[in-house]
Structures are given as structure tokens and as C-alpha cells.
């Protein structure tokens, strides 16, 4: 059995498995997020991945497996999350779990979402790209095609990830953290603003009122629909995010001239 530890948006997750092909997949997909040991004070989870089937899934099975909705049942501090393709058992008291699944990474992607949502009472995962400059960070969100990946491509030194970003609200200041989805590398920063992207003929931002911000941002939140309590926490965290962080609409042309607009202070 081999154990590798990762930092997924501020949670230290150790994944243990005895399958060489699965370890290769983990290396390809998550190696940038690998850490040797958790930092002091980090919340840790230990997950054992047991291969249910050693063969790889065919493309159609892979697609079907990714789309299958997850269901959840609870028995005290134990939670059972399942799809027809995998079963994830979490012990919230011990912060341990087992994952029975096929030779694929999507069960781990879903595990990351479940563990993250279960761990942080004040936090949510947003469909958006994360950008950092020192300790200042910004989240650029919007539906597919709105420009998240374009913006990340313009600023490879500032972009952490271009798909899903973790937002924590439990500290003194809201913080963002990169998650290992699509193009990403680890990193975190204070969250200074959220941009709802659209392509435009010039670079400009417009502060959104809370109602409009909620209407736009709620469609880009990763809602843990499999768990009512996690959904309630996500809802309350979204309201908290709107109260603490300025939300802007950003119209931009695909040039680097947009960076001063993004990084401008809110005042």
C-alpha cells in the first residue's frame, strides 16, 4: 500500500491505494498538489481507495460515471455517498474514509467535493478561475465560454486554476484556494473580489448590487445537492460571501491590459 498526501484547497487529504495503475493516474492528475506532510493546524483526512474493478472504464462508461448523481445517507457520524459506479464511506469523527471505485480519477474528484463541503462550515466551491498577486486574490466566475480560461491563459503567472476554486469564510478574511480541476496548481490568497466575466469591447468593471450578484453567482456554485445540511451551509456561505466580498461584473478584451482593472482596489 502506498500513501500520498495532497493539499486540496486547504484540506490535507492522504490517499492510500495498492494499485500501480491507480497511482499513475493520481500522479498524472494531482501531483502538483502533493505535499510531504500537513502543515501545523491543517485539517487532515485519510482515504483508502479500494479498486472495485481493475480494468479501465471505456469512454462511454467514463462519461456515464462522471454524470451520475451522487446520493447520500447518514448513520451518526458515518456518511455513505454513492453512485452506481463508486461508494464513498466517510467517518466524520475520525476523518477517515474508504472509496470503492473503478480505475478512474472522477470518484476522487467527487470525494474532494464531499470532504471539502463536509469540513468547512463557512465555505463553498465556485465554478471559477483563481488569480493571485502576492497575498491578494481574485475569483473570476461565469458560465463556460465567459472567458475564465482565456483570462487564465493571459496571466499564467497569476492564475492558479481555471475551473473550480474553494472559498473559505471562517477566518479573519475570506480566502480562496486552488482545487485540482482541469488546469491548476496549488495556492491560496486573501479573496479581494469576485468578477462575473463577460467578453466586451473595452475593459471595465461594474459593482453588482447584492441581488444581482446573488442571481449571477448562485448559478456558478457547486451545490452539494446530495446532502441537505451541506446545501444549507453552502447557501448561508454564499450569503456571507456577498456580504464580505465585492462582486463585480468584468467586461474585458483578451489582452493583458485588463490586469490593472482586475487588481484595482475596491474603494
Amino acid at each position: 500500500m502506498t500513501t500520498h498526501r495532497y493539499d486540496f484547497g486547504g484540506i490535507s487529504v492522504a490517499i492510500t491505494c495498492d494499485s500501480h495503475p491507480l497511482r499513475q493516474l493520481l500522479t498524472l492528475r494531482y501531483d502538483a498538489f502533493r505535499i510531504t506532510k500537513p502543515a501545523t493546524g491543517d485539517i487532515t483526512w485519510d482515504i483508502v481507495y479500494r479498486l472495485r474493478d481493475t480494468r479501465s472504464l471505456c469512454p462511454q462508461e467514463l462519461m456515464d460515471g462522471r454524470k451520475q448523481p451522487m446520493s447520500s445517507t447518514r448513520d451518526g457520524h458515518r456518511q455513505y455517498l454513492s453512485t452506481p459506479t463508486f461508494l464513498l464511506e466517510l467517518d466524520h469523527r475520525q476523518r477517515t474514509g474508504t472509496l470503492d471505485g473503478p480505475l478512474a480519477t472522477f470518484p476522487i474528484d467527487r470525494m474532494i467535493q464531499a470532504v471539502w463541503s463536509a469540513t468547512w462550515e463557512h465555505g463553498l466551491i465556485v465554478h471559477g478561475a483563481a488569480f493571485v498577486d502576492g497575498n491578494r486574490g481574485w475569483l473570476a466566475s461565469g458560465p463556460s465560454g465567459s472567458g475564465k480560461s482565456t483570462l487564465a491563459g493571459l496571466f499564467p503567472n497569476e492564475a492558479l486554476c481555471d475551473e473550480l476554486t474553494a472559498v473559505r469564510l471562517d477566518g479573519i478574511e475570506p480566502r480562496l484556494g486552488a482545487l485540482p480541476f482541469w488546469h491548476s496548481r496549488p495556492g491560496k490568497a486573501a479573496l479581494c473580489g469576485v468578477y462575473m466575466l463577460r467578453h466586451g469591447t473595452r475593459d471595465q468593471r461594474r459593482r453588482l448590487d447584492p441581488g444581482e450578484a446573488f442571481a449571477r453567482l448562485r448559478k456558478e456554485v457547486l451545490w452539494p445537492t446530495y446532502d441537505a445540511e451541506a446545501m444549507r451551509r453552502t447557501f448561508e456561505s454564499l450569503a456571507e460571501l456577498l456580504a464580505k466580498v465585492p462582486i463585480w461584473e468584468l467586461a474585458f478584451r483578451p489582452t493583458q491590459a485588463v490586469w490593472p482593472v482586475i487588481s484595482r482596489d475596491a474603494a
Partner: peptide, 25 residues
Amino acid sequence: TVEQVAATCAFFPAQNPLCSQVPFS
């Protein structure tokens, strides 16, 4: 209806042109 999230590449990498770009070089 609350959807988990619409049309993200997160769970479907490289499955459509929008999810197949290489932004970090």
C-alpha cells in the same frame, strides 16, 4: 431548481472544445 453546477469542465475535462484549451503555458 438548484443544479449542482451547469456545464463545468471540472468533471468532464477535455470533453468539449471549451474544456480542451491549454491556458497555462
